[in-house]
Amino acid sequence: EKIKSDFFELLSNHHLDSQSRWSKVKDKVESDPRYKAVDSSSMREDLFKQYIEKIAKNLDSE
């Protein structure tokens, strides 16, 4: 859970929106230790998708 929250924090530093693509974001964040803390690339992508869904819901509710 800490790894997930750290990863979300990392993503939040990059001002993403619901149109952001993992392939582009990954290049910007892959040197960060919070990125490396997530064991697998599929898990990183899953967390990215969860984060994008979360910010999309937040935008819808505003």
Rank of each mutant, 00 (worst) to 15 (best):
K2D: 07
M43C: 10
S61F: 14
K2N: 12
E9K: 10
S12T: 07
K28S: 11
S40M: 04
S41L: 08
D27R: 11
E53D: 07
W22M: 03
W22N: 02
S5H: 08
Y35V: 04
V25F: 15
A37Y: 03
A56C: 11
P33L: 05
L11S: 00
F8D: 02
D60P: 11
S31Q: 13
Y51T: 02
E45S: 05
L11T: 01
S23E: 14
D46I: 13
K28M: 13
V38I: 12
S5C: 04
I55Y: 11
M43N: 09
K36D: 10
D46A: 13
W22I: 01
M43F: 08
D46P: 01
K28V: 11
K54V: 08
K26N: 04
K57M: 13
D17S: 08
S61L: 08
D60Y: 05
H14K: 03
V29Y: 08
Y35I: 02
S5F: 12
H15K: 15
K2H: 07
S61E: 11
V29E: 02
S23N: 08
K57L: 09
A37Q: 07
N58M: 07
S42T: 13
E53K: 13
D46N: 12
D32P: 00
Y51V: 00
K49T: 10
L10P: 00
F7T: 01
K49Q: 14
D39P: 13
K36M: 10
R44E: 02
H14Y: 15
L16Q: 02
K2S: 09
S23A: 10
F7E: 01
K4T: 10
K57I: 12
L11A: 01
I3V: 09
R34E: 01
H14D: 03
D17T: 13
K54T: 12
Y35T: 02
L10F: 01
E30N: 13
N58G: 10
E9W: 03
D32K: 00
E9T: 07
S31D: 15
S23L: 08
K2W: 02
I3C: 00
R34D: 01
K24R: 11
N13A: 08
R44W: 01
K57H: 07
D32V: 00
D17G: 06
R34T: 02
N13E: 12
S20Y: 03
V29Q: 00
D32M: 00
V25M: 06
N13K: 12
S41Q: 14
F48G: 03
N13S: 15
K2F: 04
S61W: 06
Q19E: 14
L16S: 03
I55A: 09
A56K: 14
K4E: 06
Y35L: 01
S41A: 15
W22H: 01
L10K: 00
S18Q: 07
S41V: 10
P33W: 11
K36T: 11
Y35G: 05
L10V: 03
K36C: 06
K2V: 04
F8A: 03
S61K: 11
D6G: 06
D46Y: 14
V29K: 00
S41H: 14
K28C: 12
L11I: 04
L47Y: 14
P33F: 07
R44Q: 04
L16R: 01
S41W: 05
S20E: 07
Y35M: 03
R34Y: 00
K57S: 12
I52S: 06
D60R: 06
S20T: 06
M43I: 05
S12C: 06
L11Q: 00
S18T: 07
I3M: 09
K36F: 06
K36Y: 05
F8W: 10
A37K: 07
L11D: 01
Q19I: 07
Q50M: 14
L59Y: 14
D39I: 11
D46K: 12
I3L: 07
E9H: 04
A56M: 08
S20M: 07
V29M: 14
I55V: 12
F8G: 02
R21Q: 11
F8T: 03
S12I: 02
Y51G: 02
E53L: 08
W22G: 02
P33T: 06
Q50N: 04
L11R: 00
H15F: 06
I55D: 09
I55S: 11
D32F: 00
K49C: 09
D39G: 14
E30P: 00
R44F: 01
L59Q: 12
H15T: 12
K4F: 08
K57C: 12
K24D: 15
E62L: 06
D32C: 00
M43H: 05
S23I: 13
D27I: 15
L59G: 14
S12N: 15
K49V: 10
R34K: 03
D17I: 02
E53I: 06
F7D: 00
L59H: 15
K24M: 12
K4R: 10
S31C: 13
H15R: 13
I3S: 06
K36A: 11
S61R: 12
F7G: 01
E9R: 06
R21T: 15
K54P: 03
F48K: 04
L16A: 05
F7N: 01
S12H: 11
H14G: 03
K54W: 06
P33N: 05
D60I: 06
K2T: 06
E9V: 04
I3Y: 04
S40F: 02
A37I: 06
E9D: 12
I3F: 05
R34W: 00
